[in-house]
Write a protein that binds this DNA or RNA. Sequence first.
DNA 1: GGTGTGACCAGCT
DNA 2: AAGCTGGCCACAC
Length: 103
Amino acid sequence: MQVYALVRQIPFGKVTSYGAIAAFLGSRQSSRMVGWAMNQSHRSRLNIPAHRVVNRNGQLTGKNHFGHPDLMQQLLEQEGHQIENDTIVNFEKAFWNPEQTLL
DNA sequence: GGTGTGACCAGCT
DNA sequence: AAGCTGGCCACAC
């Protein structure tokens, strides 16, 4: 729920991490639930940019749960990111902190 | 209805 | 430095 709301807030060309979302919404340790939420996100009527959510290393851990394993990478590249070995280059620079905008 | 398992993360061997 | 463990909570079996 809140996860969806937050993920939808992620601006174009930015990415964030499961941990950041979890930490912002409640407990940092609930990050697994965020991942679960993302898994269910495709059911939602709202289109959730799940590709903008990666793990703390910028690694595209959830790409297998997209239609095609490479789809996530394609989408990110489409948004101007550079992907190298399933990891976003300059992840720290592209990182979007929820507190930064929503606080 | 108990158990196991995550698109994670941090802390401890 | 790499691997294991615990924590969180929803869901399938």
